[in-house]
């Protein structure tokens, strides 16, 4: 088992996590992340009884909420906490490509 991740592997997870790294940090994480990942490899030595998975303990079924409107925030409160805004909008530097999601 190799004892560190490649630089590319570290940069890949940093990209997934949206965290910029200095060269120094990359080197450090090549070793540290590998150590943790070696640790979790141990899961492969464990056998499970069945495919049941545990999502939330002790909740038989989610209790559904009635479709009734509750209190909402004033737009001023919404934008008040944001670092950048204009008018009633929260602002970010322009995003060119379309949304990835829905």
């Amino acid at each position: 088992m190799k004892d560190k991740l490649t630089k590319e592997e570290v940069l890949h997870v940093a990209e997934l996590a949206r965290i910029s790294l200095t060269e120094e940090e990359i080197e450090k994480y090549q070793v540290e992340l590998k150590e943790l990942l070696n640790d979790v490899e141990k899961i492969n030595d464990v056998e499970s009884y069945d495919d049941d998975i545990l999502i939330a303990c002790f909740s038989e079924s989610a209790k559904l909420r009635k479709d009734e409107v509750g209190e909402m925030l004033d737009p001023k409160e919404v934008i008040g906490a944001s670092p950048r805004h204009s008018g009633n909008y929260i602002e970010v530097p322009v995003v060119i490509s379309g949304g990835e999601g829905a």
């Binding site: 997870v13 994480y29 499970s48």
Partner: peptide, 27 residues
């Protein structure tokens, strides 16, 4: 460190190999 390792553990096929397996053993 934990966010990066966590992202890796859920990435691609890893979610199945690690995360789902862990939930199954947890059960």
């Amino acid at each position: 460190r934990r966010i990066m390792v966590g992202s890796y553990l859920l990435s691609g096929e890893n979610a199945k190999i690690y995360y789902n397996k862990a939930l199954s053993i947890r059960d």
